[in-house]
Nucleic acid binder design. Sequence first.
DNA 1: ATGAAAGCGCTAACAC
DNA 2: GTGTTAGCGCTTTCAT
Lengths: 341, 341
Amino acid sequence: MNIKEIAKLAGVSKSTVSRVLNNSSLVAQDTRKKVLDIINESGYLPNSIARSLKVKKTKTIGVIVPDIGNPFYFEVLRGIEKVLDKKGFNIMLCNSEYDEEKELRYAYLLAAKKVDGIICAPCSESSKAVQNLCKWGIPFVVFDIPQVNLATNLVVVDHSECSYLAAKHLLENGHTNILSIDVPNPQKIESKFVLGYLKALREYNILPKPELIQKASPDITGGYSIIKKLNNQKVYFTGVITICDLVAVGVYKAAKKLGLKIPDDLSVVGNDDIPLARYLNPPLTTIRQPKYPLGFRSAKLLLSQIESKSGTEPYDCTQGQPTIIKLGVRLIQRCSVKRRN
Amino acid sequence: MNIKEIAKLAGVSKSTVSRVLNNSSLVAQDTRKKVLDIINESGYLPNSIARSLKVKKTKTIGVIVPDIGNPFYFEVLRGIEKVLDKKGFNIMLCNSEYDEEKELRYAYLLAAKKVDGIICAPCSESSKAVQNLCKWGIPFVVFDIPQVNLATNLVVVDHSECSYLAAKHLLENGHTNILSIDVPNPQKIESKFVLGYLKALREYNILPKPELIQKASPDITGGYSIIKKLNNQKVYFTGVITICDLVAVGVYKAAKKLGLKIPDDLSVVGNDDIPLARYLNPPLTTIRQPKYPLGFRSAKLLLSQIESKSGTEPYDCTQGQPTIIKLGVRLIQRCSVKRRN
DNA sequence: ATGAAAGCGCTAACAC
DNA sequence: GTGTTAGCGCTTTCAT
């Protein structure tokens, strides 16, 4: 069943049917009714594919995240969904699993499917995928991970501020041997996260120890295994800051296994404030990320970009100043940090 | 940049370019190379929209769930993604928010976008959305919520078994006043969840009390407010079983607020076994749902359905026996249930 | 092994 | 107000 058959049944032309489908005012009341009746009783479904081919708009947005299993991205996704749904956009969700190859493949797929735009949290600071999005001229915004050597529309928090706040809180509570657990990153440069950590140490005149600057995969397993490893190596620390709450959960798990009590034997501050953080045992002290706003603002930004795009031209991401939205974070004190003397 | 321009640059016809794009063997080695070179240096992106219009396949699957914020659906989604990604399908994710209207609207949107199939966890047992999918002849499988009066391909667990197992565990531990928290459902009939609960009570010769059969929205807030309400009404119970772990978290929250200790003052058993259940305080005793398999099997089932579909015909869901896959559940004992004397 | 041409279902000038 | 027509970018017979 297509527009042509409907036209025949209604005794009008394709254009007329198309007009009523698109709520054009250029159609008489009774013709409209006649056509609408036919459409309803025939169970006709417009073919958006054909429409998209013609109008060069798909009303769908691609979203690429490293791990939908992480509540952090969940919350972001909710923010994205909120604004997109209201505007009639669908989301094509892609899970890169922190795999650059997969990320790139998805970017390609989405581009080929002619999504109207892409929201991406890249796995790395110089993502091949976002470089290509730029090249292909498709509107996009990146969130969470700023790209080096590439000025893009961006919505982020300052990761160094997170670790700074977290480390400072521990320092204020008398901890001097603080473990920092970051994600592995392929870049040579120091990550923002350890930069903030270092800054806090400096303010307290504490020399950083290399063995306390660690990296782990950003999930429960990552946190678990790093603590186990360090315990085997007899590395000493009384506090730990983690790149995300999931890693903190892994730390909890390891602590339990090792017979370490939190916060008595080990203080930990997370990063994210996932919904379940407050229900952990003990409730997790953490840095609250504006997760929902991250998604919400990203989507808004993308939409404005799409709307301002001149007709059918590819989007030129190198022209004009990119918009950078930086969102604030704050410390949420719960029960996983204990004062030391 | 399109196939026509590539053809011109390479000095061949559109058909030839199309052939190399589709890895047809009917093209000479050197022509292929020549075309490939042009494609690479021009940064040409095939237009899947146009292709889809022609071949009537989009290589995308729609997924409709009531709440992506619930880790249960997350895990299911991971299972779905696993099999779909391997086959080169994209996922269009839709969040119905337990709203029948929205569910229906999404079904329509997905159908119009000509997704190759749909996986849906309907909000209700007689979803207008799935009835329409049937009518529209698009391949789909429903999971988690069986439809009354409509034989569909299905992958589920037996909800009555969940509540039965949960209630029985409480009964075995000496509890006789057990609260059941189900989701609200518009149907007149008793839900599966309370059926299993009732069955367990019957085996222990305990008469059900209407005030202990409650419904709440399937999230933290739902669990929280129902406990608060019942507390105000001085309803007495020592154990509670919940339709999902998130509700159990809400129960935890209310208990804390009310000064009730779990499990000393109140025993609770959840349902789902979300990843964080074991990290709650106290670790939650719950019924483990095969979440990942639920998604995995649903996707597999859908794919086989799509593959068996005869050419371009719409899918007739009324012909032949629908496949029903029933997955097992089991009790995971942790620390939220205490023996009573 | 390659090209010409028809057509997928729709929209949007343009004519009337 | 309505119809005619020419594509959108691709695949796929059917010739050659």
